[in-house]
Design a protein around this nucleic acid. Structure first.
Lengths: 133, 133
DNA sequence: TTATAAAGGATAATCTTTATCCTTTGTTAT
DNA sequence: ATAACAAAGGATAAAGATTATCCTTTATAA
């Protein structure tokens, strides 16, 4: 179990046992939604409040310690912040995977066509993963 | 005001006045969220129920008459189904724009890297639109 | 024109998320 | 190590969003 104390403090978040456990759950699972996270947390903290989960998720988002990924026709999942990447979601097992893709070309084409100043790209593919095929 | 009667029936949806007005609102606005849609509908139907909006949105989604677009850090918007395309959202004025981009290369690269069978691509750029810069 | 399944409206019920309040705790400076 | 204090946690209420229910009305097909 990795210690996220320093990482939390770097993002101006106090390193409480609950936050350390949440960080670990996201690290271990990669991507996780609120319900699943709450269930995991309940195992370690018998009386943790769902409000604590929400409060921490929101603070961690505000401080960019984590990111939200909106999944088509499903609940959002959360992941520890890392280098920019895209996502794949399996419609069968619901698992979410990271993928690194070269999007410079598409992005500059989008900026040119639209006149937008783009600062964020959110790309999610839906399909069937290797295992589920 | 375009008549969506036939279009609705093609998707196995009865053409009620409420649904025709919802279709028109989406056609006129391009992309719209539940709250804005409800406000527009209230002008035409003084006593329309919010439940009617939700019921129809869900049926229209199930029958692929419309599509949901999940917007990062904001509420989902809905649009009439049309040819596959991507989206741009302005972080200032919140407007959502359609854009046609060539994604074959990126998609096949994603399939190759991951082993996924991809059947849907959801791409949303966030930034500042031409007008708001 | 009529019969019927489906849709609309009103409202209750059910999530989901946030706010409140008080107790406990992490952190910083002695 | 200790004390002080802002911040976090837990319990719970409140608010917000979505769905279910029930009865009346209506679109559609025969």
């Amino acid at each position: 179990m990795i210690d996220f104390t320093d990482e939390l403090r770097l993002h101006n978040l106090k390193a409480t046992p609950q936050r350390l456990a949440m960080s670990d759950a996201m690290y271990v699972n990669g991507h996780i939604n609120i319900d699943a996270l709450y269930l995991i947390m309940l195992k370690k903290f018998h009386s943790i409040s769902l409000a604590t989960i929400y409060k921490n998720i929101n603070l961690m988002l505000e401080n960019s310690f984590i990111q939200e990924v909106k999944i088509p026709q499903d609940k959002s999942v959360y992941e520890l912040s890392k280098d920019i990447h895209s996502h794949l979601v399996c419609q069968k097992c619901k698992e979410v995977f990271d993928i690194n893709l070269e999007l410079e070309t598409v992005l500059s084409e989008a900026q040119q066509q639209s006149g937008f100043k783009i600062c964020k790209t959110s790309l999610v593919f839906s399909g069937i993963c290797k295992k589920c095929q």
